[in-house]
Design a binder for these strands. Structure first.
Length: 587
DNA sequence: GCCGTTTTCGGCCCGACTGTTTTCAGTCG
């Protein structure tokens, strides 16, 4: 998980979430959603509510989406006292471990309350004991199936891998797709959900298809052998869900042709986007559901997503943008937005060769880029000497490498081949913000990437100062993987993003969108902000072996989610235009 | 409790599937 940059936001979000559940337990209408929504919004904020309160008082809090007078007051109360009275009251009433119980699939607020009242279940371990003793099946409104489900789902929670990396799930997703597509009568099979939105992590897979023999495809689906179905979660005429041994849940929906677009739209989500769309539908006198857009009982759109958006008075919205973060307002306007496409990429500037820890020779990398990917240039950016584990290059080695690159470039020129290898390096930003390679050498390279590779857990002020010094260094052109997190493995550095943005803008420093699927750093929301600020961006593969160069596709996905067009990304430029983006060629 | 291209009051997304039910509430996506 991402480190909690704004711990207070997270603390309050947790309380709001629990309050929402408590209110739900008591059967209160609408308030639960308001609390949950507020919790979700707090988690997306780029600023601490403590800062907002300090700068703009309670009015600043109320100005936030989803926060009104009441919740603003509760935030203020928490900032002042470290507590929220309403919450403390509920804690006494229900001394229950809401967070973990709520994680158990099939358990919602009402069931949690029921188990608490009937059996005194306070937490997951109480629940397990009660279910194992057979207490649940003997309750009024209880039953054997319910009890068994609880036991199954408890096991599931213990072993669950919450979200999978997009890149690790991609081959499996396509393999299942291929098996379903050959079932007789199947057409238009699409993988929807967060997979289609190209999120960096995927929680489950959602397939939508048209089928002339729905039962046939459902049967194939629930009997998959490779991958093997571990559990059939539900099995209906039009919707079924299965689970694989590793816990991955996969859903299949079979729909009529006339509802295909509506179903794809609906199951692609995001949920928040869909809710917004339905509100627009209602405002225009329609009703939108997974079967189509309706005026009364008459379907007015549904076979394609395009016609649904059109009927709602919206431009078509690319799946990657469907997060309810302003795309609907955009779609009501006239401005075009041609998101970047993989074919726009002309080269790759973050490539490690066998001079450092990489596997491939410079000429093999160049030929792969030129012939397989159709690039016009690459930049070799090997690690530098501080990173001993990666056999980082020292000054002398960099100069020797420069000669080799010049030789290969000369050969291309002799053969009239339009391809150029640039020499950069990926220098290390040391603890004091200086680099591990002398300026006299740095200025002889074509460009310099610098990144954090050590002491990533410095406190906010310290690591921000370190990064700012690097950004202000006239020899550093690109900051690689700025936040330096690893998805699901390592938290991000606690950088002050606002200060990074300002400094990058002032100095013309380029920020990298690192396409390694374990990094995807910058993340989409930050990409979008950087773009808005006019900051230059580059999408790099961070290649260590030939195939890694194809990772660029994941970076494209993240960039699209960040509303990026071709012009925002410097490695869509032709070489002559590209090199002008480097500070050394501007100053 | 929030919010406003119908609204400062009166709405608040929608349907499938499950389990224990015999008409539905709860959960999920």
């Amino acid at each position: 998980m991402v480190a909690e940059q704004f711990e207070v936001n997270e603390e309050i979000a947790k309380i709001f979430h629990r309050l929402g559940v408590f209110l739900d337990m008591d059967g209160v209408d609408f308030k639960p959603t308001a609390y949950q929504r507020a919790a979700a919004i707090l988690r997306t904020l780029d600023q601490s509510v403590a800062d907002i309160y300090r700068l703009s008082d309670i009015k600043g809090l109320e100005a936030l989406e989803g926060i009104g007078k009441n919740l603003a007051y509760k935030i203020k109360e928490y900032l002042g006292t470290g507590k929220i009275q309403t919450y403390e009251k509920y804690l006494k009433l229900y001394p229950i471990d809401i967070d973990n119980l709520d994680e158990v699939p099939g358990l919602g607020p009402k069931t949690i309350k029921w188990l608490w009242e009937e059996l005194g279940v306070k937490n997951v371990s109480d629940l397990k004991i009660a279910a194992e003793k057979g207490l649940v099946k003997n309750l009024p409104r209880g039953g054997a199936k319910l009890e068994q489900n609880i036991l199954n789902n408890l096991n599931l929670v213990e072993t669950a891998n919450k979200r999978w990396l997009y890149a690790e799930i991609e081959p499996l997703a396509e393999k299942i797709k291929a098996q379903l597509e050959i079932v007789p009568g199947v057409s238009n099979l699409l993988i929807t959900g967060s997979y289609r939105r190209k999120k960096s992590t995927i929680g489950d897979l959602d397939y939508v298809t048209v089928a002339s023999k729905p039962t046939l495809v459902m049967d194939v689906f629930t009997n998959l052998q490779n991958p093997k179905v571990e559990e059939i979660i539900s099995h209906g005429k039009t919707r079924s869900s299965i689970r694989l041994a590793d816990g991955l849940e996969i859903d299949l929906r079979v729909v009529d042709k006339k509802s295909y677009g509506a179903a794809c739209q609906y199951f692609t989500g995001s949920k928040e986007h869909n809710i917004e769309l339905r509100k627009i539908a209602i405002a225009k006198g329609f009703k939108l559901n997974e079967y189509g857009l309706y005026k009364g009982v008459k379907q007015v759109a549904g076979s394609s997503e395009e016609e649904i958006y059109k009927m709602l008075g919206l431009r078509y919205i690319e799946p990657e943008l469907r997060e309810n973060t302003g795309e609907i307002e955009w779609a009501q306007g006239k401005k075009k937005l041609d998101l970047i496409n993989i074919k726009d990429i002309k080269g790759d500037l973050h490539i490690h060769s066998d001079w450092d820890g990489g596997k491939e020779s410079i000429s093999d990398l160049a030929e792969y880029a030129r012939l397989k990917l159709g690039y016009e240039y690459i930049g070799i950016s090997d690690h530098t000497k501080f990173l001993k584990i990666e056999r980082g290059l020292d000054e002398e080695q960099l100069m020797a490498q420069r000669l080799e690159i010049q030789k290969i470039n000369a050969k291309y020129k002799d053969k009239h081949i339009n391809f150029t290898i640039l020499q950069g390096c990926e220098a290390n930003i040391l603890n004091d913000g200086s680099l591990d390679i002398r300026d006299t050498i740095l200025k002889q390279l074509d460009y310099v990437i610098a990144g954090l590779h050590s002491q990533l857990d410095m406190d906010r002020e310290e690591i921000t100062a370190r990064m700012l010094k690097a950004i202000n260094n006239p020899y550093i052109d690109i900051i690689s993987h700025p936040f330096t997190g690893l998805i699901n493995r390592r938290p991000q550095a606690k950088l002050d993003w606002g200060m990074i943005l300002t400094a990058a803008k002032q100095t013309g420093t380029i920020l990298e969108i690192n396409a390694n699927p374990l990094r995807l750093d910058l993340e989409a929301p930050k990409i979008r902000e950087a773009k808005r600020e006019g900051i230059k961006l580059v999408i790099d593969s961070d290649t260590h072996s030939l195939e890694d160069m194809n990772q660029i596709e994941y970076g494209i996905g993240e960039a699209r989610r960040g509303w990026v067009v071709k012009e925002d990304i410097i490695n869509t430029f032709l070489l002559a235009h590209l090199v002008k983006q480097f500070k050394r060629n501007v100053l």
